[in-house]
Design a binder for these strands. Structure first.
Lengths: 221, 221
DNA sequence: AAGTGTTATACGGTATACAATAGTCTGACA
DNA sequence: TGTCAGACTATTGTATACCGTATAACACTT
């Protein structure tokens, strides 16, 4: 058991990140430092450090002397992010399947179970747990930079998915895909899990595309 | 002409980043905040913001209550970084070649010229200008996240290349490869420039591998 | 040699102050 | 009526001073 000490700045980082991902702080919103610091009961120093980190992560934008703003979502970026995920994640997951230990497989199983539970109870946690499951399939690769990049891409995806996707039936299909992924992955069937992951990502992108089309039509009606 | 205002924290970020890349602050070194702040003539607030950013960029590591340390270099990571570059950069450069405008082509040409000049005069600038040239081939793609990831990978590479590679003859070969790349790229020959970029990256990796072998043999002798 | 205080250093954070800047408002003037 | 200058305001970015405490190094005991 390794205990982890977290600085205030790191805690604020995750907290604000989650607020942005979940949309509780909407796109384009300005971050009022004094107000937010007061609300969180901290001074502006650890807050500003967290904001600097979040800008580096691509969730915030800063203009000198005007402060930080939540990075707006735009359709082109969805295509970009998913293209990147398709280039990196299926291969990574496939390779990781070869290296996974029993402990890794248990962890992935647990992550999927947690996701399934949340899907039926606390919807607000679905995004986070979905990401956790995806990452658990990559982690055994032990490639830190790869892992970090994939995680970052997943975080950005989460913003879009949370914002635009919740048609009925999606949950079921996602559940089935995840189960199949985990089975193949646990069996070390690298190529197959890789292919399925590619498909899983592509389908989600396709759903997003359709949803954007819908929203555009509604907007122009 | 768009003027750019830079906060102190952003300036410190680039400055410290360059010191790390160039090795002026060696791997594993501890960053003494008070000392560095005093040396730069700034307070610890903007310095710490810059350090937080640099950790997010993967150049520093922090331990709570112990501070920031320069992330050590290790051989496995070289393989990882180059694998990622090979997955992303050739395709990106190929696509960018299709989209490049005259202005883009001029910029790339200028970047290569600057690199060539530095190769014969100010060796300390070679790393930075090499990266600038590579990035100029990707920039017309106008994919911000892709661009940022590739830049980050190039920055990490720069640390290894600067540290381990300067055998004679490499400069010439690199120059020839760069020229050929630029020609194909400017002609919009997407597939060819993509293939050549793949080769260019692979060759550099191969050089690094050889160099590591050499260093290992020397060390064990 | 090993384990147990003790101490110094540097970090993480708070509170406060202030100059600089961007945005807003107002009123004068063409 | 429109716009332009200038005053006003809000907020950022940075500095300074200070505090509690975690960590590492050292001394001390057994």
């Amino acid at each position: 058991m390794t205990i982890v000490v977290q600085t205030l700045s790191e805690q604020i980082f995750s907290l604000v990140r989650d607020r942005i991902i979940s949309g509780r702080i909407p796109a384009d919103a300005a971050i009022r430092q004094d107000a937010l610091a007061a609300e969180l009961g901290v001074s502006k120093i650890p807050l500003r450090e967290a904001l600097a980190r979040l800008e580096q992560e691509g969730l915030l934008l800063s203009h000198a002397n005007r402060g930080y703003f939540v990075r707006p979502l735009n359709v082109d970026e969805v295509e970009e992010i998913y293209a990147l995920r398709l280039k990196l994640e299926p291969d990574a997951v496939g390779e990781a399947a070869k290296m996974a230990t029993d402990a890794d497989r248990k962890a992935a199983r647990a992550a999927l179970d947690a996701l399934d539970v949340a899907a039926n109870t606390d919807k607000t946690q679905v995004g986070k747990l979905n990401r956790a499951f995806h990452m658990s399939l990559v982690r055994p690769l032990h490639r830190q930079v790869t892992l970090q990049i994939i995680e970052r891409l997943n975080i950005i995806c989460e913003r879009y998915v949370g914002k635009h996707l919740e048609p009925a039936g999606r949950d079921d299909r996602a559940h089935n895909e995840h189960s199949a992924l985990l089975d193949l992955w646990s069996a070390g069937r690298s190529d197959e899990v890789s292919a399925l992951m590619r498909q899983h990502i592509a389908i989600t992108l396709e759903d997003l595309r359709k949803q954007f089309e819908m929203e555009k039509m509604v907007a122009s009606a």
